[in-house]
Design a protein around this nucleic acid. Sequence first.
DNA 1: TCAATAATAGTAATCGTTACTATTATTAAA
DNA 2: TTTAATAATAGTAACGATTACTATTATTGA
Lengths: 127, 127
Amino acid sequence: MVKYSRQREGILRNLQSRRDHPTADMIYDSVRKEYPNISLGTVYRNLTFLTETGQILKISTQMGADRYDGFIKPHNHFICRECGMVEDMEYISCDEMILQASGLFPGLIEDCELQFFGKCKNCLSGQ
Amino acid sequence: MVKYSRQREGILRNLQSRRDHPTADMIYDSVRKEYPNISLGTVYRNLTFLTETGQILKISTQMGADRYDGFIKPHNHFICRECGMVEDMEYISCDEMILQASGLFPGLIEDCELQFFGKCKNCLSGQ
DNA sequence: TCAATAATAGTAATCGTTACTATTATTAAA
DNA sequence: TTTAATAATAGTAACGATTACTATTATTGA
């Protein structure tokens, strides 16, 4: 049985109000302004809960800590290999690819993830 | 200046001889049979080197430790959400998608990664 | 054969995350 | 309302994966 918590709501609202794909730690710093006593464990626990209930997205960038995204309309991400910045990109559907792959694979393919890597505008222009 | 090391060669050969996408720790256990004194740090250092020089691939599965792959012909991966198994899949090119995306994005897209998630045959059949 | 230095083994430290526990907050029912 | 059950919390400890450090060993070009 799930009970309401103002901390959880604060975390969700914080994440929905920004588009910078923060880490758990960045969210912690930010939410702490509203709830000075909130603990990092609470942030992690709720990020996991919100991810599992589909209210937010978790992004693994293979560089440093996981990122979170309050914008859940399907879209892709660009990850800068130099500064680690994560930016939204227009959605390119994986549906045909899943279909294509499912015929060849002895298992259940539920979804796929498409991430783009490269250098962002800032890093290209030498900082 | 890069100097030869038998440990590095052992790690590379070990990785090339298997298709199970092992973690650094699994490689360590395995290579230790040939080099009983090899240290985990040496394994990590060389895995990083081999990845950066394009001799192996590093796979982030967003579940547990990173996996490594000695098979570098372009291909995709299926990751089982239940047991974490990583399996090779036929390559589906991202080239058109990179092209498509590049026109819309103010940065340099170098490559993209496509991973499939779901349940493997074993986990589907209830173990 | 030697000198320069890259790579190592072993260990400590770090980072991101999860687990634990006593306390507090929420909620459904009396 | 009060109360009782228990979910969620704060604070902290523990954990797993990875990196950093340092004295020693191995490789290599001269």
